[in-house]
Nucleic acid binder design. Structure first.
Length: 579
DNA sequence: GCCGTTTTCGGCCCGACTGTTTTCAGTCG
């Protein structure tokens, strides 16, 4: 049983306990355990074998025993019992926006509604509005929520979220009443997918301008529906049914509000608990000493962290993954920045399925201020992507050699994204690989093989001295494919041993390695290479997404090949080949 | 159900908005 499967069971238990109106803290315990299991990098079965289960935060005696029961029997008695006592359709009902476990329970008890279909019918018959605590408006909202659920159901990619937020900021930013205007939330943390978009702003004269800003916000051209509109907070739905919240806060509270609306739920709880221990309370308006309603801090995040006796925690780290402990000891890493990046290790040219010639790609790299760029076209087996026959590889080597002779501003590395075949061999022979500057190896087929086989394929590729980087190591593809199963402990071990880098593929639908694996890889000393996988010139911009993943993975520039100058990189690449 | 620099018991974050109420519960983030 995989970590994800076990985590999903605990999430489901939490939701069913909610419906049974159980103690909220007990529910939170299950959620917390699930979140922590989900982000483990080792199979939980191994942790159990080593007797280290109680080392995982949020897992105590009771949940620990349940994990062991699941691993040994494949089942969990409590879970089975819960499932038979809670109609499964109720979970779905409680998940509808505007509804929760309380109302779902009332619907079940009073009208015997067990699923969304039944709910829709009851609403249309006007039965729901007659229930105590319900009314006409709620009935309407439920119908709207059901209709919307049919049309969506997936989270937004970071890339899309950034685009929408940027456009809103650009539009609203035209208002002269607005002083500060910044996205917060999971977007500011640069989470790989975004549930909704939170934007905060301050205005010159709150008593007058707040209202104007809200008026303007709910009437922006991209707004499709208005969910809520108040003096300080409004929520709208824009294209693709994405929810956007705008809050107006006081200038003196801006830092506190940014902090409050940026941190993940767990991070905020940890911050709050810390404030309490220091005899303070913190909310979106500021940090207050108990019994005193004049804030000690609140205008900037920096002063708040200072008062909390913490190093400044960059937004990307505010996920409750040990950042408070590190910040307390002043041991947070200096995170890599876009300005540290000197090259891109994964780009496709018109030789295979890319959109730029060698000249154009080099030009694009120069415009971005890079020292080097690796042109890594697909190998021969990937026919669908116009993979290169050996003959054309030679031709490409020759063209790039000539380019580098005539142009000195950017160094173009001739590379390949070579397929790792289903038996772990490579799509080109060693002789051809040895003639390339850089070799990126990737799995593009046989995703459904068992974990052991997939792991072995990648291990075998890394053991080849001509392979420098493993591209998109977990194979995940948002909205299309779950990551395939791998023994990441083994992969990290061999990567370190062989001097192979793991890629952060910066393409918006991949962002692979995932951030929590980056953190683990860095702890083990494994190096990371960020590649945009650009198939069009403008896609070189994806580098910023890759840097975000690296930052969320606690990486500093030392962990990353892209921060190396060309000569440093050439040495690293040569070292693996044994030059 | 977890956790511990007051604690093995008693805490566990907190405010805005909506809709149904006529002072507040439910939901959300």
């Amino acid at each position: 049983m995989t970590n994800q499967e076990i985590a999903s069971i605990f999430y489901e238990i939490a939701r069913m306990l909610e419906l049974k109106d159980e103690n909220q803290f007990r529910i939170r315990s299950y959620e917390k355990a699930a979140r922590n299991i989900e982000t483990l990098t080792e199979p939980i079965s191994e942790i159990v074998q080593q007797g280290q289960l109680n080392k995982i935060p949020g897992i105590g005696q009771s949940i620990g025993a349940k994990i062991e029961e699941l691993l040994s029997t494949g089942k969990l008695k409590q879970y089975e019992e819960l499932k038979s006592s809670v109609p499964q359709g109720l979970l779905e009902i409680a998940n509808l926006p505007g509804l929760g476990q309380k109302r779902a329970r009332i619907l079940y008890q009073k009208l015997n509604i067990k699923n969304v279909k039944g709910l829709e019918r009851a609403c249309k018959q006007g039965k729901v509005q007659e229930l105590p605590g319900f009314g006409m408006k709620i009935e309407e909202n439920i119908l709207a929520a059901i209709a919307m659920q049919k049309s969506i159901g997936k989270r937004l990619l970071l890339f899309q979220g950034l685009d929408i937020a940027n456009r809103i900021v650009r539009e609203l930013g035209k208002m002269k009443q607005i002083k500060k205007l910044e996205p917060a939330g999971s977007l500011r943390r640069r989470k790989e997918t975004i549930g909704d978009i939170d934007i905060l702003c301050t205005v010159d004269d709150p008593s007058k301008s707040s209202k104007l800003v809200m008026e303007r916000f709910v009437k922006l051209p991209m707004v499709k529906t208005v969910i809520a509109k108040g003096e300080t907070k409004s929520s709208v739905r824009v294209e693709d049914d994405v929810q956007v919240d705008l809050r107006v806060v006081d200038d003196n509270s801006f830092g506190a509000a940014m902090m409050y609306f940026t941190g993940s739920k767990d991070h905020n709880i940890a911050i709050r608990t810390r404030a309490l221990k220091m005899g303070c309370t913190i909310n979106e308006y500021g940090l207050f000493e108990v019994g005193n309603n004049k804030p000690v801090a609140g205008k900037t995040e920096r002063e708040l962290f200072e008062k909390l006796k913490l190093q400044y925690i960059p937004p990307e780290l505010r996920e409750c993954r040990g950042e408070l402990e590190s910040a307390e000891k002043e041991q947070l890493p200096v995170l890599v920045e876009q300005s540290d990046i000197k090259g891109d290790s994964h780009v496709h040219s018109t030789y295979s399925d890319g959109a730029g010639t060698i000249d154009e790609i080099a030009d694009g790299a120069e415009k971005r201020g890079y020292e080097w760029i690796a042109v890594t076209d697909h190998s021969q087996s990937l026919k669908i992507a116009n993979g290169l026959e050996p003959k054309r590889v030679i031709q490409k080597i020759e063209e790039i050699r000539k380019y580098n002779e005539q142009n000195k501003n950017v160094r173009v590395l001739c590379g390949t994204e070579v397929d790792i075949m289903s038996d772990g061999s490579l799509d080109y022979d060693d002789e051809l690989l040895s003639r390339l500057d850089i070799v990126v190896a990737a799995i593009h087929s046989g995703f459904k093989q068992p974990k052991e086989i997939l792991t072995k394929r990648i291990v075998r590729a890394m053991e080849n001295k001509y392979v420098h980087i493993i591209a998109h190591p977990t194979g995940r593809h948002f909205g299309k494919r779950e990551p395939y199963e791998l023994d990441m402990t083994e992969i990290f071990r061999v990567a370190l041993e062989t001097g192979t880098a793991l890629e952060i593929n910066a393409h918006p639908v991949r962002l692979d390695l995932p951030d929590f694996y980056c953190q683990k890889a860095a702890e083990k000393g494994v190096q990371i290479a960020i590649g945009t996988d650009a198939h069009a010139l403008w896609e070189l911009e994806y580098m910023e997404l890759g840097v975000s993943v690296a930052r969320r993975g606690w990486l500093s520039k030392n962990n990353i090949w892209n921060s190396r100058s060309y000569s440093q990189l050439a040495k690293i690449l040569g070292r693996k080949r044994g030059d």
